[in-house]
Amino acid sequence: MSDFNFKDLDSQIGQDFGSIQDAQALESLRVKYLGRKGILAELTSRISDLPAEQRPQFGRQVNRIKQKISKLLEEKRQTLQPKPVSRIPSPEIDITLPGITQELGHRHIITQIIEEVCGVFVRLGFAIVEGPEIEQNTIILPRLISPWSILRAMFSIHSICVMSHAS
């Protein structure tokens, strides 16, 4: 029993920990070596079967392996998971505060009124029709009934256009 080859175990550990890629695999390695039915638990249980003079020597080896694995686990954990602390930009920002929410918009009061009024007439069978905001003056004020000048005064219309640039 005392001829357990600790060198093989050492190289096995080196291989296992060297090829590790993620936190899950790391956890399964922890179980494999340090778990309740793991390799080290088994080695420890063998101590009592050994002759008394071999026990201290064997126990030291087991402890060495145990420390080595603990150290490797800790190292790997550090490299696989970036420290959570590093995600906090600065200690003054309280990350537990609620985030900045985007307010939902709503329809403008005038739009609501237009929809309400048109809705009443639509219920009565009216159709909604829209047209261009820029029109020919002859259609804006057709010369049908009143003299042009009266119309113009009534609707406060000028015959000049709105300037599209300041030149």
């Binding site: 029709v129 829209e130 047209g131 261009p132 905001e133 820029i134 029109e135 020919q136 003056n137 002859t138 259609i139 804006i140 010369r143 042009w148 609707f155 406060s156 219309i157 015959s159 256009c161 709105v162």
Partner: peptide
């Protein structure tokens, strides 16, 4: 009694 045709911003929605 003559009226030139021009484009204007409408002053009411009657053209529609």
């Amino acid at each position: 009694g003559r009226q030139d045709t021009k484009l204007l911003l409408r002053s009411h929605t009657s053209p529609v």
